[in-house]
Design a protein around this nucleic acid. Structure first.
Lengths: 252, 252
DNA sequence: CAATATCATATTGTCCGACAATCGGACAGG
DNA sequence: CCTGTCCGATTGTCGGACAATATGATATTG
C-alpha cells in the first residue's frame, strides 16, 4: 500500500548549519575568496556549539566549497577545483566498478565534441597552450609517467580551449581514470608515441584552422587508436579502473 | 626562480583519520553495507578524541562514502549515489558559471554516445523500463514539473540501458541542470511535447532494434531540437545555470 | 511458537570548557 | 628593505558530560 505519510524528516544541527552556509555560497551571497567568520563567531550566530560548527565546516570543506590559502588558518569561500571534482567523480566511478572499456567509451563520446568546441572557440592563448602541450609530448622520450601526463595535459588544454566549463570539468575524471591504462600502453606498444603525436599534430592543426569537423574526426580516430592500443598491449578491457591507493592528498 | 624546497606538508588529525578510512573503503577492505565501528571505538583505535573522529566522519559522509540506513544511527559504508555525485557536480558547475548553452553542448556530445551504447547492450528489462518512460511521457498532459521529470527519466533510463556506469553518472548532473530550462520550453513551446514524444518513440524503436547508428542519429536530432526550443522559448543561451536555491536535502 | 511489548544498554548528537600551536599583524632595529 | 620579536586571535585537539534514541535482549501475550 502506498504510505499515507512521508517519513518525518529531521536533520542534525551540523547538517542544518552546513546547508545554511552552502545556500549562501550557492546564492553568491558569500563570494569566492571571501573569508568566513571565525568558528566562534559562527557558533554564536547559529546558536550552536563550536564543535557543531566545525562538523558543518568539514562537510563544506570536503565538498570543495570552503578551503584555505596554503598555510592559511582562516577558511575562505572557494569553488570546487577541477581536481577536487574529478577526484570525487573518479572515486565514485571506482566504487561503481567502472571498467576500462566504460571510460574509453565515454571518452569516445565526449572528446570529439570537445575537439570541435575547441576548434570553434579557441583563443590565441589557448591555442598556444595546446601547441605547447603537443610540443612537450613530441620532445619527450622515455619517462613513462611524464609522457602520460603530457597526453592528459593535451586533452585538458583542448577542453580548456573549448571554453566550456562542463567539458572541462567532465574531462578531468575521465583523464584521471585513463592514465593508469595509458601508461601500460605507452610501455608496451612501441608505435604508440608516434601515433599519439601524429594525432595531436592533426588535431592541433584543425583547431588552429577553426575546422571543427576535421578536429572532431581526428579526435575520433585518436580515441579509436587507444582502443587498438589496449588490444595490442593486452589490456583486458573489462579491468576495473581504480585509482592507485594513497594517491590522495593527506600527508603525515 | 624555481623554489628549492617543496612546502612542508602537514595534515590535521581529522584529515589523516578520514584519509585512512577512505583508503580502506577505496581498497575494498571496508565493503559496502558494512557498519563502521562506533565513534568511540574509532577514537580509541586512532588514538584521537571522539570530536576529531566525528570531523573525519563528516568529511566522508559528505563525500558519499559513508551513510546510514533511514532512521539508522550507526554509519555504514556506502558508495556515492548517483544523486550525491550529480549534486556535487551540478553544484560545481553552477559555481563555475556554466551556461545553458554549455550544458546543451555537453548533452549534444554525450547523448548520442549513450544512445548507441543503449542500442548495443540494452537488456530486455532495461528496454521495458525505457518503454515505460516513453509511455509515461506520452500520457502526461499539463503538469510541467512532472513532464520535465518524465523527460529526464527517459534520458536516465537510456543511460542505464547502456550499462556503462560512466555514462550513467555523468548523465545525472547534466539532466539536473537541464531541467529548469526544459521546464520553460515545455511551458512556452506548444509543439515541444509532440516533438519530444516523437523523438522518444524513434529512439526507443532504434534501441529495440539494436540499431546503434539510428539511435545516435535520432538522439542527435532530439538534442538539436532542444536548442531550437531554447530559441523559440526565448531563453538566453548565455543564462547561467543554477539550481533553484534550497533544493537541497536538509529540513528543519 | 510467533508476534509483540518492555526494558536496559550502547551510541550518537550536542554542549561546555580548556589549552597548545601558530597565523597575522604590529612594531622595532639593523 | 629585510629581520627579529612580540601579542592577540583563531584553529586543532582534548576531556568530560548528558539527553535522546536506536539496538538488541528479554519478557509477555495470543
Amino acid at each position: 500500500m502506498r504510505p499515507m505519510f512521508d517519513p518525518v524528516s529531521y536533520a542534525p544541527a551540523y547538517l542544518r548549519v552546513s546547508e545554511a552556509i552552502r545556500t549562501r555560497i550557492l546564492g553568491r551571497e558569500l563570494r569566492e575568496g571571501q573569508v568566513l567568520p571565525t568558528e566562534t563567531e559562527l557558533a554564536r550566530q547559529f546558536e550552536v556549539n563550536r564543535s557543531t560548527v566545525r562538523e558543518a565546516l568539514r562537510k563544506l570543506e570536503s565538498a570543495g566549497l570552503l578551503g584555505r590559502r596554503r598555510g592559511g588558518k582562516r577558511l575562505i569561500v572557494t569553488r570546487p577545483t577541477r581536481e577536487a571534482v574529478g577526484g570525487g567523480l573518479s572515486q565514485a566511478l571506482t566504487l561503481h566498478r567502472a571498467r576500462v572499456v566504460d571510460v574509453w567509451e565515454a571518452l569516445q563520446a565526449v572528446q570529439p565534441g570537445i575537439a570541435s568546441a575547441a576548434a570553434l572557440r579557441r583563443s590565441p592563448a589557448a591555442l598556444a597552450k595546446l601547441s605547447a602541450c603537443a610540443n612537450r609530448f613530441a620532445a619527450r622520450s622515455g619517462e613513462r609517467e611524464a609522457t602520460v601526463t603530457d597526453v592528459a595535459d593535451f586533452f585538458d588544454a583542448l577542453a580548456e580551449a573549448g571554453a566550456n566549463p562542463v567539458f572541462h570539468l567532465l574531462n578531468e575524471p575521465l583523464l584521471r581514470l585513463l592514465k593508469p591504462s595509458l601508461a601500460v600502453i605507452i610501455d608496451r606498444v612501441p608505435q604508440a608515441r608516434v601515433r599519439i603525436g601524429a594525432a595531436q599534430v592533426a588535431i592541433l592543426a584543425a583547431v588552429k584552422a577553426r575546422d571543427a569537423k576535421r578536429a572532431a574526426e581526428w579526435m575520433t580516430r585518436h580515441v579509436r587508436d587507444f582502443r587498438r592500443g589496449y588490444e595490442v598491449a593486452g589490456i583486458d578491457l573489462a579491468t576495473e579502473v581504480g585509482e592507485p591507493p594513497a594517491v590522495t592528498s593527506a600527508i603525515s
